[in-house]
C-alpha cells in the first residue's frame, strides 16, 4: 500500500510537468481548433538557445530562463506564420501536417546550435528533497505543480477578464463574426502563440532544470506527453489539462512499478486509445462532443 501511495505521489509530481505542457496544447486547440504538433520542438529550440548561452557565457539561471522564453516565442511565431496563419482555417489537417514538417526543421536547427547530444542545463534553486512521513518528495516537482496551478488561474483570468481574451474567444467562436466586429484574427492568433510559447518555455525550463540536461529528443517527448495529457483531460478544457497531466503521470509510474519500464509508454497509449473510444472528449471535454453528436441526430 505504501508503494502504491508513493507511486501516486511520484506520478503527481511527474504529472505536473505534463500538465504544464498540456496547457499550451489546450489553449491552441481550445481557441483555434487546431493541433500544433511543433509545440514541443519550439520549446526544445528555446531551451537549446538558453543552454547555448549558458554554455558559452555562463550566465545567471534567471537569464537562461529569459533566453528560453525569447527563443521559444520567436520559434512559436515562426510556426504560427508558416503553418497556421498562411493556411486557411478550413484545412486544419493541413496545418497539423505542416506543423509536423516544421518539426524536422526545428530539430535540425537545434542540432546545429549544439552538436552535442546532451547539454547541461542550470536549475534555478538547489534541489531540496524531503521526507513526509514514509513518503519521499522532490521540491522541483512541488514547485512545478504550484506553477501549473498558478498558470491555469492566470490563463483563465486572461481569457475571461481581458480584452485580448475576449477577442481570442470571439475568433474561436466565429471567425467571420469576429472579423465584422473589427477583430484582426491574424494578430490575435500571433498573440495566442506568444502566450502559449511563454507558458511552454517556462514549463520546458522547469522540466529540463529538474533533469539538469537537454537533448534533441525533448521536442518529441514534450509533444507526446502534452498531447496525451490534453486528450486524457479533455479537449480545450483548462482544468482538464491539469487533471489529464496528473492522471498520465500516475498511470506511468504505476505501470512502471508493476509491469516494468518497457510497458510504461504502452500503458499510457493504451489508456489514451481506450479513453478516446469510450469518452472521445476526455474527462472534462465531453460536453463539446455530445453537443456535436446531438446536432447530428436532430437533423
Amino acid at each position: 500500500m505504501t508503494d502504491f501511495l508513493q507511486n501516486c505521489i511520484d506520478g503527481v509530481m511527474i504529472g505536473s510537468s505534463y500538465a504544464l505542457l498540456a496547457l499550451g496544447f489546450t489553449i491552441i486547440f481550445g481557441v483555434m481548433r487546431r493541433l500544433n504538433l511543433s509545440f514541443g520542438p519550439t520549446i526544445m529550440l528555446g531551451a537549446f538557445g538558453g543552454a547555448w548561452l549558458y554554455l558559452h557565457f555562463n550566465i545567471n539561471p534567471w537569464l537562461v530562463l529569459l533566453a528560453c522564453i525569447v527563443f521559444t516565442v520567436a520559434a512559436g511565431v515562426y510556426v504560427e506564420r508558416l503553418c497556421f496563419n498562411a493556411i486557411k482555417r478550413n484545412v486544419a489537417i493541413t496545418s497539423m501536417v505542416s506543423s509536423f514538417v516544421i518539426w524536422m526543421q526545428l530539430e535540425e536547427i537545434a542540432i546545429h546550435i549544439l552538436p552535442d547530444r546532451t547539454s547541461p542545463f542550470p536549475p534555478l534553486f538547489a534541489s531540496l528533497s524531503f521526507e513526509a512521513g514514509p513518503f519521499y518528495v522532490r521540491s522541483e516537482y512541488l514547485f512545478m505543480f504550484a506553477v501549473a496551478v498558478a498558470a491555469v488561474f492566470a490563463v483563465e483570468r486572461i481569457l475571461h477578464r481581458t480584452w485580448f481574451g475576449l477577442r481570442l474567444r470571439a475568433v474561436a467562436e466565429d471567425p467571420r463574426a469576429a472579423a465584422y466586429m473589427g477583430i484582426n484574427a491574424g494578430r490575435v492568433s500571433v498573440y495566442a502563440f506568444v502566450l502559449v510559447s511563454v507558458l511552454g518555455a517556462v514549463a520546458g525550463y522547469l522540466i529540463l532544470a529538474a533533469d539538469q540536461q537537454v537533448t534533441p529528443f525533448f521536442g518529441l517527448w514534450a509533444t507526446f506527453k502534452g498531447l496525451i495529457a490534453m486528450m486524457l483531460g479533455g479537449m480545450g478544457s483548462l482544468p482538464g489539462a491539469i487533471i489529464g497531466g496528473l492522471l498520465l503521470g500516475v498511470i506511468e509510474t504505476q505501470s512502471l512499478w508493476y509491469f516494468g519500464n518497457e510497458y510504461k509508454d504502452l500503458a499510457a497509449y493504451l489508456v489514451l486509445f481506450l479513453m478516446l473510444i469510450a469518452r472521445p472528449g476526455g474527462i472534462m471535454g465531453q460536453r463539446l462532443v455530445e453537443r456535436r453528436r446531438l446536432a447530428f441526430r436532430r437533423v
Binding site: F29, R33, R34, L35, A92, I93, M96, L227, I228, M231, M235, Y269, L270, L272, F273, L276, I277, P280, V289
Partner: peptide, 9 residues
Amino acid sequence: LMLVVATIA
C-alpha cells in the same frame, strides 16, 4: 483531430 490522435495512439 481526435481521430488523428486516436490513430497516433
